[in-house]
Simulated scan of single mutants.
Amino acid sequence: MGLNSMSLKQNNFSHLTAKDRSSLSFPAKKVKEMGLLQGDILDFGCGFGKDVELLCKQGFSVEGYDKHYRPEYPEKQFDTIICFYVLNVLLPEEQSKVLMEISALLKATGKAYFVVRRDLVYEGFRIHKIHQKPTYQTNVILPFKSIFRNDFCEIYEYQHFNQLKKKKSDCPFCNPSSNTELILESAQAYSIFDKYPVNPGHALIIPKRHISDYFELSFKEQSSCIFMLNEVKKEIYKRFKPNGFNVGVNIGEFAGQTVSHVHIHLIPRYSGDVDDPIGGVRGVIPDKRKY
């Protein structure tokens, strides 16, 4: 098997790209100069943590998290999150997971800054010159606001989807209320709790692009929604401890769709929430529930 056909499970050495430095990284200097480091700050994927150390010495309130070097996961939300060059060494599934994790760690009105490299020529797995292990690198384009770019890097500013000013629309999923709790968010989709839940923890997974028919979503959009569904399920289970789940999508008026913007229902089920749960989603046609 060639280097570039290696799988997600084999991207085990991304941490080897971390560099030991004696001064602030260029991205850290830049976001500091731009006045973007506000309130409680998290350096997500901080590597050896030199930026954390030096920024703390300069009076900033900064914590660091790194899956390999500082594995204690943060237990609070932050006003500002910085993520420098992390996405460039991750496969697409891993990138999406990082975006969702950061969305959950960011306060409702907070901002995150993703810095990605713009000087990569070769993409894919290659053998690290020093460590002699296969490490991955790729160019990354994000659908967020770009606030700085040079020949070497680009800085994106991320805010929760429901905090952004959008075009006028009557669609509640194109313009979710700024007071709505977002569960998770990625580049392509976001998730919220249903406004009229049928059970505690009833969640919706929603693609950001306005389209009514699930089957007309691109493969990338469908994949993003299903990947988020898996992660939201974990979050719902952690919070509510249900005994089971129903997953459903209403497509078209005669299937009961009332909002013409795709949304996937994740409905937690609990022991005793109905007298007889046999048939599950077959109950959309009551006479056919049992078979």
Rank of each mutant, 00 (worst) to 15 (best):
D79A: 08
V116Q: 06
N88R: 05
L99G: 05
K111R: 15
D79V: 04
L37S: 03
Y122F: 14
T109E: 15
M100F: 02
F114A: 10
I82P: 02
V98N: 04
C56H: 10
T138P: 09
S61G: 01
Y69S: 01
D119A: 05
Q137P: 03
L90W: 11
K97F: 13
A104R: 12
Y85W: 09
A112I: 10
Y113A: 12
K97P: 05
H128Q: 12
F114H: 09
E33T: 14
R70Q: 15
H128S: 12
D119G: 00
H68N: 05
F60N: 01
I41H: 00
P71G: 01
P134F: 08
V98T: 09
E53Q: 12
P134W: 06
T109A: 14
G59S: 08
Q58W: 07
Q95P: 08
K67S: 08
A112T: 10
F114R: 07
D79F: 03
C56I: 13
S61P: 01
R118M: 12
L55Y: 00
G39I: 09
T138Q: 11
D119Q: 06
R70G: 13
L36W: 09
F60W: 01
E93P: 13
Y73S: 13
H128C: 11
V89A: 12
K107Q: 08
G64E: 04
S96I: 15
V86L: 07
V121S: 14
A108S: 11
R126P: 07
T109W: 13
D79I: 07
Q137N: 07
F125E: 03
L55D: 01
L36V: 11
Q38G: 12
Y85D: 10
L99A: 04
K111P: 08
I127F: 09
E101R: 08
M100K: 06
Q132F: 13
S103Y: 07
G59N: 06
L37C: 05
L36A: 10
P74K: 07
F125L: 06
H68V: 11
T109S: 15
K57S: 15
L120A: 06
G64T: 08
K107L: 05
K76C: 09
V86D: 01
R126M: 14
Y73E: 14
P71K: 01
E72T: 15
